[in-house]
Computed example of a mutant assay.
Amino acid sequence: MTPPFRLLAITPPTGPVDPDLVTRWRAGAGDCALAVLLREPGAAPDVLLDPAGRLAPLVRRCRDRAIPLLLAVDLAHVARAVELTGIDGLHLRGDPSLASLAALRPRLPGLLGRAVHGEPRPGHHLVDYTLVAPVFPPTTAQPGAPLGSKRPLGLAGLRAWTADPAACIVALGGVGPETARDCLAAGARALAGIGVFFGPPGRVEQDVAALSEQLRAWHVLPPPTRA
């Protein structure tokens, strides 16, 4: 399955975000397809899209640059999220069940993704992508949880997910220029991260460029367009 994006920038769980990083992503990624996942643990959809909220400047910049926006939601918030406009798809958190995916798919005209952990499970035909995490120890901690508290799947766990030819797997967790090649060799179709996209601007541009080059090498993507 062809992924709807090759790079997925996931917003940090707390704190402000710099909208000018979007320019750095574009410079580094070239023509490598990029999307942004608006995510804040426990936040309702209206909070994530609040025009006065912490993510609002980033949302506006992404819309100006025609970068697809995905909304991370818990199952309890799906009904409200479906009503909202200005997003390109939903990302279900918390290892959603097969029944919940089957119920939501007909109601959603845009993209549908899911976040999963642990052993492979069915449902690839109901989603556009599956975000598998963490592959390696994450570099960003969740609020209230110590860094490194999540047990990584490792490359063997990632390969177990990508073994299904119907799977469109996005790798998350410790994914960066040093580990991306191993994830792609294990069958990942796209790469996701938090810190790699929301760090110091100069480093972000370099890291995104490195990820893009590795994706091109593995998946024969179009050459980058340079201004």
Rank of each mutant, 00 (worst) to 15 (best):
L158D: 06
R159F: 05
R159Q: 13
A160H: 01
A160K: 09
A160F: 10
A160S: 12
W161E: 07
W161S: 04
W161I: 03
W161G: 02
T162F: 05
T162W: 09
T162A: 13
T162G: 01
T162V: 03
A163N: 13
A163S: 12
A163G: 15
A163F: 05
A163P: 02
D164W: 09
D164E: 06
D164T: 02
D164I: 05
D164G: 08
P165F: 07
P165M: 08
P165A: 10
A166Y: 08
A166W: 13
A166D: 11
A167W: 06
A167K: 02
C168Q: 15
C168V: 15
C168H: 08
C168R: 02
C168S: 13
C168N: 04
I169F: 13
I169C: 10
I169H: 03
I169W: 11
I169Y: 09
I169R: 06
V170H: 01
V170D: 07
V170S: 09
V170K: 03
A171L: 02
A171C: 00
A171P: 00
A171I: 09
A171H: 00
A171N: 04
L172Q: 04
L172A: 08
L172T: 03
L172S: 01
L172C: 14
G173M: 01
G173D: 10
G173L: 06
G174V: 04
G174S: 05
G174D: 02
G174M: 01
V175A: 02
V175D: 07
V175N: 00
V175H: 14
V175P: 00
G176H: 03
G176Q: 05
P177K: 10
P177T: 03
E178W: 10
E178T: 15
E178V: 07
E178R: 09
T179K: 11
T179V: 11
T179H: 02
A180K: 04
A180P: 06
A180W: 00
A180D: 03
R181M: 07
R181S: 14
D182H: 15
D182Y: 04
C183E: 04
C183H: 08
C183I: 01
C183S: 13
L184D: 07
L184H: 04
A185V: 13
A185T: 13
A185Q: 14
A186S: 15
A186F: 00
A186H: 02
G187C: 08
G187M: 04
G187K: 10
